[in-house]
Structures are given as structure tokens and as C-alpha cells.
Design a protein around this nucleic acid. Structure first.
Lengths: 191, 191
DNA sequence: GCCGTTCTTGATGCTTCAGTCCATAACCAT
DNA sequence: ATGGTTATGGACTGAAGCATCAAGAACGGC
């Protein structure tokens, strides 16, 4: 019935996500985008509408993929403590390997705090992570793996906040010892 | 001997700092700057050299002023725990009042992680904060205000990281309850 | 094989960007 | 008061920004 699209939309969003993730919104130009996606600007606009909308799609992708992975790991975990430890260490390693990346959520929250769509998406995802951690801690408590005196809701908020901090200091090129100390300090609240 | 400068350099840096702080580097144009500082672009370039250099001066100002205040508060404190609590609550209040601001250090680290001058300055300031907290905790430990089993160095790294996280979630418009829970969770590591 | 539809490319438009330059103004030492 | 010197402000430059558009290409249905 009509000419089919030559590029894969999902793959294009992935590539845009990687670009926005590394460079941020303002520092990523349309030229950068069309070069990376391998399409002309006309195609880009026909498919996504605007730079802002493409950014929103990229952020959405990140939330469902990366935050989704954390959530899935916590929900399937039998040992919350070690699941958290594993996740935090993985983040530390990622930051040491590619410090210019960091966490797209954090980058989005800080660079685009004037854009309510971005802020809402970030806030929602943080809430989701908070809820997942809280749920996991409640299950641990019910099982006796977490002292009855602890407050899962409070710990979840604290841990969610700490995670964001990790991604910030990771961008400041601190060394492995710093990040690992920070992680053990944070996890000590569970004891 | 020659015509004197009509504007105050320090005040100009302060105003530039406020602008960069709220909008970030890329989203602040020279027009924004000249309008806010009340000077022509010629004067701006004669005094500061370039947008990047002005940004560096602004960041430096922030580090010595805001991080300096935290450091001074911790060094003069007799009760580290309550000094930390006060500082963290003040940050939470600032984030609730002006979420688009956040922490300039965090914004700089995330937006300009490709610029080594920025990264170095941020990293150095984090190290300074870390060292100050560690020192305060050591003194508390010597005085018997902190359990001997705790590791001041580890706690300092953890708390420094947590503080950065606070400033991120603060930008995501979480509510007061969230921030206060997070703070009490973090402070519980000192017990 | 032709038509209507949708896609692709890249030239184009118009705005905004960072940074420079110049004519003028303000100062101080003499 | 005059001259040497430096600051001022805004017009200006060239580059780069985002977004649109037109001409043609690739498809499916008939």
C-alpha cells in the first residue's frame, strides 16, 4: 500500500538513547542523531516528531530496560541483600568502565529539571524502584532475614536515594575503593 | 590611569553562578548571561575570556561557598550527628523550595562529565567533603560518640555519596516524606 | 504496469549561538 | 586640560542549531 520504513524504529530509539545518555539533551545535535541513526532528518521528524519527543522515547526505553532489569532482579531474588549488593557493584563497575555515561535517569533529572514530562518520568521510575525495594525488604522481614525493628519503607527510600548518589560520584571519576566503601556503608543499614 | 571597570567582578560571577546553576551550561546562552549580569558581551569577554571560563569561575565559587559552608559546619560542630542531620535537612528544604536548582556540583558532574576541568573540580570537592566528614567522625569516635566498631573512612564515603543522591531525587520532585525518610535511613548508620 | 500512498534524502529557511570589533566613554597622571 | 589607557555596548560575523519542504523512490493493490 505504501513504501515501508527502511530503518527499525526500536533500534533507532536505542541508538538515540545511547547518544543522549552519553552527551545529554542539549549537547546532542540533530546532526549527531541523523549520523548515528543513519537516516535523514526528514525521516527522523516523520517518525518521531521532534528532538524532544525522541528524547522522551529514549528515556522511556531506558526506564523500562535498565530500571526494569533492577526491578526484575529484586523481585526474583530470594536473598535481597545479595541481590542489592550485586546490583550496586554492577553499577560501580559500569561507572568505572564508562564514566561519561552514568545513569540516564540521573542525567535527565539534572539536565532537564525544567521539563515536566522528563521530571514526571524520572519521579515515577524512582517511585517504582522504591516500591520494589520496599516489597523485597518486607518479604525478607517476613522470612526473618531482616531484623523486625527495621522499617522497610524507610530503608527503601534511603537506598533509592543512595543509588542515585552512586551514579553521580561515579561520574566524578572517583576510584574503585571509594565506590566499594560507599556500597558497604550503605548495605550496613540492613544489618 | 585608565577607565575603571563599572561592574563588580565578584557579583557578576555570583549572578552567572545562579544562572548556570538553574539552567545548566548548554542551556544558558550568552544573551542570558549579558542580560542577567547587566553588561555587554564585550565586557564579559574582556573580563572572563569565554563562556567556559566563566562557568569554571562560577563552579569554583560554588565549591568554596556552598561546599565550604558544609565543611565549616562539620569542622566546628561538637555533635557531628546533629550537624549532619541539620545539613541534610537544610538540603531537603532547599530542594523542596527550589527543585530546579538542586546542587550545582551534581549538575556540573552530570552535564559536563566530558570536560576534565569540571570533573576534576567536582572530584576534588567530593574528596574534600569526604575528608571533612571522616575527620569529624574520627573525633566523635575518640570522644565516644560513635561506636568503636564503625569505620569513619567508610562512613564518610558512604555519606558523601548519599548526599549527592539527595540532590538528585530532590530534582525529581519527590515529596518531603520521601526525603525525610531517606535522611533518617542514612543517619541510622551512625547508631 | 500503473496509481496512490508513504518513505527518504538533502537542500533550505530562519533562528540562535559564541565570539569579535570598533567607535565612544570614562578615568588618572601629569 | 590633555593624552594615554582601558572599559563599554551593541552591531556584526560565521557557524551551527532545529525544523520544513519538495522531488523522487519504493512499495501494495488493482
Amino acid at each position: 500500500m505504501a513504501r515501508p520504513r527502511e530503518f527499525d524504529t526500536d533500534q533507532a530509539i536505542d541508538r538515540a538513547m545511547n547518544l543522549f545518555w552519553r552527551r545529554g539533551y542539549a549537547a546532542t545535535s540533530l546532526q549527531d542523531l541523523t549520523a548515528e541513526l543513519g537516516i535523514g532528518s526528514g525521516s527522523l521528524y516523520a517518525a518521531f516528531g521532534s528532538k524532544e519527543k525522541l528524547y522522551a522515547r529514549a528515556l522511556e526505553r531506558y526506564c523500562s530496560r535498565d530500571a526494569g532489569a533492577l526491578i526484575a532482579a529484586l523481585e526474583s531474588a530470594t536473598d535481597v541483600r545479595s541481590a542489592l549488593r550485586t546490583a550496586l557493584h554492577a553499577m560501580a563497575e559500569a561507572d568505572l568502565r564508562e564514566p561519561e555515561r552514568g545513569c540516564f535517569l540521573v542525567n535527565a533529572a539534572t539536565e532537564r529539571s525544567a521539563d515536566s514530562a522528563t521530571v514526571d518520568r524520572v519521579g515515577g521510575t524512582l517511585r517504582l524502584v522504591e516500591g520494589t525495594i520496599a516489597g523485597a525488604l518486607e518479604r525478607a522481614q517476613a522470612r526473618g532475614d531482616l531484623s523486625a525493628g527495621k522499617d522497610p519503607a524507610e530503608l527503601a527510600r534511603f537506598l533509592t536515594t543512595f543509588i542515585q548518589g552512586m551514579r553521580v560520584v561515579g561520574k566524578a571519576r572517583v576510584d574503585r575503593a571509594f565506590l566499594e566503601s560507599a556500597v558497604s556503608g550503605a548495605l550496613s543499614v540492613l544489618d
